[in-house]
């Protein structure tokens, strides 16, 4: 085995995958007679959902710098990044992202790396 993996030609890959798929279908029919439906449970991520990343106003950081940071950290297009930057500037804070806690923590850490005033807040 080598890295990076060597991709085979498209024709070969298609024919091989076709054989494999049909074989797998047959195997599935014979091996699994009565599928059992598992009860769906909420994951830890679902439980942790309501967190938000908030950036607070700081008169020292340049507007262009803040826009660049939003683009880099969140991958936002310039227009969206500028909209958030202006919201921070005019309203004192802007919610940049909301979702799972772990990811929100990572974003806050990245924003602090760029020296922005950012906090993690649980949505009440």
């Amino acid at each position: 085995m080598s890295w990076p993996p060597q991709w085979r030609g498209a024709g070969v890959a298609e024919s091989e995958s076709a054989v494999t798929l049909s074989a797998a279908k047959g195997a599935t029919r014979s091996a699994v007679e009565d599928p059992v439906l598992e009860k769906k449970t909420r994951s830890q991520d679902d439980v942790d959902l309501p967190w938000q990343v908030v950036v607070h106003n700081d008169p020292v950081n340049l507007m262009t710098y803040v826009t660049m940071v939003f683009q880099r950290v969140f991958g936002y297009p310039r227009e969206k990044a500028e909209k958030h930057m202006l919201e921070v500037h005019q309203k004192g804070r802007s919610i940049l992202w909301s979702g799972m806690r772990e990811r929100a923590e990572l974003y806050v850490q990245q924003l602090h790396g760029y020296l922005l005033l950012a906090t993690l807040e649980k949505i009440s």
Binding site: E105, Q109, H112, L117, T119, L120, E121
Partner: peptide, 26 residues
């Protein structure tokens, strides 16, 4: 200012974990 807290200061556990694990990295 350089090492501002990641949350409201009332969230002491969050802030102390940050100080322990994240601040050295920053």
């Amino acid at each position: 200012r350089l090492f501002s807290p990641p949350a409201d200061r009332s969230k002491t556990e969050q802030c102390s974990e940050w100080k322990l694990y994240v601040e050295p990295e920053l």
